[in-house]
Structure formats: C-alpha cells, structure tokens
Design a protein around this nucleic acid. Structure first.
Lengths: 329, 329
DNA sequence: TTGAAAGCGCTAACAG
DNA sequence: CTGTTAGCGCTTTCAA
C-alpha cells in the first residue's frame, strides 16, 4: 500500500509540487492559469491523492486538533455538549479528540497531559471539580487555548449557562404558585454550577422572606437525589416541594418520594435543572430549566477557533413549567 | 512560544539527537551507558520537552490515530461503546477521533472520508443502516482497518452481541411464564441487530408452535415504540405482552400502554433489549437483555490494535428478568 | 555504545 | 504565473 505524494501528482500534471500545493490550499486566487489548475485537479482525482496531515502539520506548525475533556461521555448532558463542539470544529477544519475523565481528577490531569502531548491547539474543558492548576498552567504556558465549559474554572474563560438567574426564576415561579415549605437539594460544593443554582434559589427565597425548610448537598447523581429525599421526607414532617440541583437528582427524588407513598405532584412538588432531552420521555413533564448544552459546546469551540485569548460567556436558559409541580396550587 | 526540539535536548545533554530518540523510544535496551541515559532524561525534564507528534508520524509513517464513527453520541448505548474503544486505545498508544453521523447516511460517508483524510489506521464503525460501500472500499484499499461494531456490515469483521440467542432466551422465558398472545415490535429492516433479535424471537415461537399476534417494524426510537403500541392496543383486542426490539421502544410502549389505561405488568407485559444503565433508574426493573456495549467497543479496538486483518466476534448477552412482566403469570 | 546524515511529505519564501 | 529550494522535527540506517 504505497501512498500517493504531492510529487507524483505534480509529475502527472506536468507541474511542480508547489503548484499542486497552491491548488490544494486555494492560494491560486486570480493568478493561476485555469488550465493548469484543471490539470492539477484531474491528476489529484486520477491518483486519488489525499494530502498527508502529518507533513502538513509539521510544516505549518499547526495541528488543527482540539481536545474535549468531559467527566462522563455516557451522560447525555456532556455528550450533547461534545456534539456542539464537534459540529463547529469540523466546520472550521479542526478535528477533535474526546477524552473521558470518568469523574476522576487524576484521570483528568492525565488526559490534560496527553492532550498536550497530542499538540492540541485548544481544549474544551468540563472539569470534574476543582482541577489541577499545575497542569492547566503548563498548558497555558505552551499557548494551548483552554476554555472551560459549563463549569467555571478560575483563570480560564468559561462558557456557561445562566444558572443563577434560571434558578431564581424557577424559585420565584414556585413561590408564586403558593409553595412555601421548600427543601433544596444542591449539587457538590466544588462545582460552580451547583453553587450558582443554589444562590439563585436563595435569592428568590430572600426576596420573598421565606426560609427554606432545609438545604442539602448531593453530588448530582440519581443515587444522591434518592438518598437525600428519603432522609428528608422521613425526618421533616412538612415539605411541600423538593427543588433539586439537576434533573438526575430530581428523578431520584421522585422515585424515593413515590416509594414512601407521596403523590407527586399532588402532595409533593419536585423540580430539576438541565432539561436533558432523554429525560423528557423517560420522566415526562418534569419542571426544570433547560440548559443549552449544544450551544455551550458550540460557543466554546467558536472561541477556540478564533485563535486568540478570549473571554467567557453566560448563555440564557429556559424555564420549563412542567407537571411535576401543582399548577393550580 | 518557541517549542523545544530534540536537538536542544541533545545539546543540553551533550549527546546527539539520535541518542535522545533512542531514550525516548526505549531503544536503549542493554547497550547504552546508564549515565548517558540519565543525562538525557534530566535534559528532557529540565526543558519540559514533549516530542512533536506530527514529526514522529511523518517519519514513522504511522499516525496511531483511529476513528470511531457512531450514529448518535448522545445515546448512552453508543457513548458507552465509545468509552470502551477509548480505554483500550489509549492503553495501546492510540488517540481516537469520535464522529457522530447523527443517523444520517450521507454524514456517515462524509465522516468516513474525513477519517481517511485524517490518516486513521483503523475505524470502529457503527453504521446507521446499510453503509455506502464505495467509501468503505476506498478505505479498505488504502489499508485502513475497519471493524464494524454492534451492527453487521457485509465484508467487514463485526464485533456484535449475541442478539439472536439473547432474544430467543428471552422469548422462551416469556413463554414459560405462560404468555401466549405476543406482539413483537422490531427495529428497522436494514439493521442486523433488529433482524437477529426478531429471528431469535420467531425461533422461540416456532419451537412452541405459537403464532405471534403481530410483528411490527419500528425504528428503535421512543416515538416509534409509543406510536406502534397505540396502534396495536387500539386495534388488537387481545394482547398479553409486547416484546420490543430495544429498551427505548419498550419505554415508549409502556408510556403508551399506561396512557391507554393498561396496567403494566398486571394486564400487559413489556420487554426491551439493550440494558442501558441509565434506564435502570429511569424505568426500573425493565425485563431486558443486557448487551455488553463496553466490551464490544473494547474488543473492536483490541482487534484494530493487532494491526492485521481480523475476524468478527459474537459476545454473550445476559437476560435480565425484571418486573415489567408478570413473574407469577 | 554513540554520532552523522538522509529523508518522511508538505508549504512558503524567493526567484524568475 | 510557476518552479526551485530549504527545512518543519523526528527516526533510522550506516558507520565508527
């Protein structure tokens, strides 16, 4: 399996390699005889010539590869984000390497090193929690354009959803419906997303001068939603509604509540956050806030494609008034 | 941001680039003075030297990159498969490019071309349906090691689950429970997985000399499970159980059945196929057959890592006797 | 046990 | 408008 090189194309077309290169890179604007170009194109076609990326990268000193580092590729939230990155990346001539840190900070650092070794020009980075700043620093020093996505990382531009406002809006609506005895189940302390959502919630409560019945910390998993809900429902006598930091915990909460004999939403309202499409048909009409995953990925990639230092962005979210709360409360 | 080259490392260590290269590639076995090696290692450390992949690829004529082409990265089924590929790939020094054909055959062909241009050494390919054989041929001619995963592609080695036997086992069990009036909702005709599962089902029925009430074709989506179930329950008066070609259709089926007032499993049993982990807590105790996604991905990648023509494999599945059928029927 | 030299395939500066 | 030339950074003979 010999591969075809630019020299052979040049030979067949009766031109020099540079001419072929110019055709390949669209550097023939105006000043190339159409027939020359035509001959080159035909030779390329005939030989089924495909340029070797490695040679091009080496010469151009550009890999046109970017990395995507996620906590869990099997979570639709992140894989949709990845799809957003991918679509913009390919449009701009980049390839992407997707890495899955599997919720482990060590693996995360390891992958950041691997991405560095791969020579990526940029990284869309969704951290597990607080990342290893040494590695990040190394990347930055080497000129890798690292953009945090969904979760803030201090020192990095971050593309994130407007979690705080979304959560505030949601809480306001809940209070407007008449709910008063509210329990909030937040995500982990080291994830900005969790804190922002909690803050938004607390703001709305303060506005209304209402104290939450309890504020708990989970870790954004189904299991933690389930466990914490059991605890709270077994110990607190009066709860009207459980507001959860994400959809996954909300689904765990609903399961636990139902198992304990609560009717949702008649006796107990439940809200989530994220609006993962898959959940819509698995747990229909969940009251939640839609986070624009795809757009987060796209925007992060767009910034990297600019090839210059960039700033973060906060993307708007959308309140989804579902049936997991009592509409006519 | 100047990058460090092997020459600078050599200079600092007071050796030649070749020596550094030998250290880098472990070609110092036995015959290199330990102190020389030590000096090189120190120089590498001090300069934070990282070899440039492009140069290495160009010289070695190997990219060590493989592609993964999936119909839908946001589907946990496929993303878990991808994770399987990834883990084996990185262990063997490969990087992976993940592409999402988004259930479109055109996009699929396009991505296959892109992967060819990327110079991938192999591709783990989960086709949307019947792929474009022209492109596949082109890849094969160029020596790209293409392995189909989960879904058979004629002419390619395929790593797949034992769908037929799994489905037969499941159907046998259902019949053993006493179910008799069975409707089967299959996946699309051009996907081997769907056909194998259907065949297994039909075999079990024949063994028992029972005619299915109906056999329908869906397309593996939630929506098609939902729609077809409505149709069948509204037109057929007597149905005991709906056997679905995958979990997603089963969940759609359950939703439709419940909406029409059927009690599951008391009045109507439902079965799926796949055993996606996410579904376990979203729709607990679904009777299904667990497909080893991760293992499929791993095995496919392992074969590619062998770097020689390979054959397919059929991996065992596991029957999950859940509560979506009546255990004591 | 190590070094010198050639060259992988491409692009870009310069020349014509 | 097109060709010549040099070299990106690495690995690998071959020679010492």
């Amino acid at each position: 399996m010999r591969r075809v090189t630019i020299r052979e194309v040049a030979a067949l077309a009766g031109v020099s390699p540079s001419t072929v290169s110019r055709v390949l890179n669209g550097k023939d604007a105006g000043h190339m005889r159409p027939e020359t170009k035509e001959r080159v194109l035909q030779a390329i076609e005939e030989l089924e010539y495909i340029p070797v990326k490695a040679a091009r990268s080496l010469r151009r000193q550009r890999t046109q590869v970017i990395g995507v580092l996620l906590p869990d590729i099997s979570n639709p939230f992140f894989s949709l984000l990845a799809r957003g990155v991918e679509s913009v990346a390919f449009k701009n001539g980049y390839s992407i390497l997707i890495c899955d840190s599997n919720h482990s900070v060590e693996k995360e650092s390891q992958y950041l090193d691997i991405l560095l070794a791969e020579g990526v020009e940029g990284i869309v980075f969704v951290p597990v929690g607080q990342p290893d700043y040494n590695v990040i620093d190394k990347l930055l020093r080497r000129g890798v354009n690292v953009v945090a996505a969904d979760r803030r990382v201090s020192g990095l531009p971050t593309i994130e959803a407007d979690n705080r406002n979304g959560s505030r809006e949601l809480a306001r609506w809940i209070l407007a419906l008449g709910y008063r005895r509210v329990v909030y189940i937040a995500g982990p302390k080291d994830v900005s997303t969790a804190n922002d959502r909690l803050d938004g919630f607390l703001e709305a409560m303060q506005e209304a001068s209402i104290e939450p019945v309890a504020v708990l910390r989970g870790n954004f998993t189904y299991e933690s939603g389930y466990e914490l809900t059991r605890e709270v429902l077994l110990s607190q006598s009066e709860v009207d509604i459980l507001m959860c930091g994400n959809d996954l915990m909300a689904i765990g909460a609903i399961r636990a509540a139902v198992e304990l004999g609560f009717k949702v939403p008649e006796q107990l309202g439940v809200t989530g956050f994220d609006g993962i499409p898959w959940f819509e048909f698995l747990c229909p009409h969940l009251t939640t806030v839609e986070v624009p995953f795809l757009a987060i990925g796209e925007e992060a990639m767009r910034r990297i494609a600019q090839r210059k230092p960039t700033t973060g962005a906060v993307l708007p979210v959308k309140l989804v008034r579902g049936h997991s709360v009592q509409r006519s409360k």
